[in-house]
């Protein structure tokens, strides 16, 4: 009568796939702000100067309520840095009563004992903290903010002190990749899992970014993947999906940006509809329609012998070429190396 999920990740994957078949928006990301107290050169948002207007807490709660009525279950709150909003708890607390599996994405540097205590009263399902290095020197070289390494460590410790389910992830760049082993050791000492990411996308507002100086070479990135058993599984399953892209964006998941625009994902600013104006149902319908209309990969990609190993999607093409289907040379090299391994 009840089925205990021994394997949580496969269950969630199955739910996402079932939801996609039904057209149910089971997963949503709310980007509460573009503001951040750090200044990482590789960040795809990095809008410290002129952030977009931000929705008020009542609007986020209205959106969540409507999304919940249409089947939302897995909700991610992210930024920018979510705790840079002074009214974060006005948004967050009502969401914890609505029946969502909530994940908070944060850099951890603004989490004080008081904030951890308030979270513990109404805990999220999970908090994911991004770690940018294992030493003060490297961490702050990435974030550009003196003192941020200690603050991050304090934030992690505060979450642990209050038994809040947490995990670490790291964004690997040329500045911090040499500290990967040390970061794994740090995570291990805290008793936390560490996941790694290295495929960095350009800034989504089209501004110049430090991405070329930050990105790992395709050789380094692929060799790191091979050392990570979870990544090997991802590579093995990469061919699943529809023609235009392989993830479930726009089929069972969506993103809503700081000013309330609903898009396929955080990296592709389309269709940019506003559920607060036209209603959630109509907005989700637009997202699904936009997804269905996305073009398949280019003929070059379709003929490519490395296609099954390539992470390209419309968001990657848009970010790198301004089109929705053109090949992305950086990813071409990665796909070739993955196949050759």
């Amino acid at each position: 009568m009840s089925e205990t999920a021994i394997q949580y990740a496969p269950l969630v994957r199955a739910l996402f796939n079932d939801a996609a078949k039904q057209g149910q928006p089971v997963a949503g990301t709310f980007e509460l702000t573009e503001s951040c107290n750090l200044s990482c050169g590789m960040c795809y948002i990095r809008n410290n100067g002129n952030p977009h207007p931000e929705l008020k807490p009542a609007s986020w709660n209205q959106l969540a309520q409507e999304a919940g009525d249409h089947g939302l279950i897995f909700l991610i709150l992210t930024g920018g840095e979510i705790f840079s909003r002074n009214d974060f708890f006005e948004i967050y607390i009502p969401l914890t009563k609505m029946g969502f599996i909530i994940t908070l994405l944060t850099n951890g540097t603004l989490i004080s004992e008081t904030i951890a205590e308030r979270l513990a009263d109404n805990p999220p399902n999970h908090v994911e903290i991004t770690l940018y290095g294992a030493s003060k020197r490297t961490y702050e070289k990435v974030t550009g903010v003196p003192g941020s390494f200690e603050k991050c460590q304090r934030g992690i410790q505060a979450l642990l002190n209050h038994d809040i389910s947490s995990g670490l992830k790291t964004t690997l760049t040329r500045l911090n990749v040499h500290e990967l082993s040390a970061m794994k050791k740090m995570a291990n000492n805290w008793g936390l899992p560490l996941i790694t990411g290295w495929l960095l996308m350009k800034r989504r507002d089209g501004s110049s970014s430090d991405i070329d100086q930050s990105r790992l070479s395709s050789e380094t990135g692929v060799s790191l993947e091979l050392a990570d058993s979870r990544a090997k599984n991802v590579i093995g399953n990469i061919t699943e999906g529809i023609n235009s892209h392989k993830c479930l964006a726009g089929r069972s998941s969506f993103t809503i940006g700081p000013s309330g625009a609903m898009n396929l994902c955080s990296h592709l600013p389309f269709p940019g509809v506003h559920p607060l104006n036209i209603g959630f149902k109509a907005a989700w319908k637009s997202v699904r329609q936009y997804t269905a209309d996305l073009p398949p990969p280019s003929s070059t990609c379709l003929k490519c012998e490395y296609l099954d190993y390539c992470p390209r999607c419309p968001a990657w093409s848009f970010s790198e070429t301004g089109t929705l289907k053109a090949p992305v040379p950086y990813l071409c090299r990665i796909a070739r190396l993955r196949k050759m391994q």
Partner: peptide, 13 residues
Amino acid sequence: TGSSVKHMHGLIT
């Protein structure tokens, strides 16, 4: 939801 998240990090089918 709420305090029950302390006892269960996940969901039941």
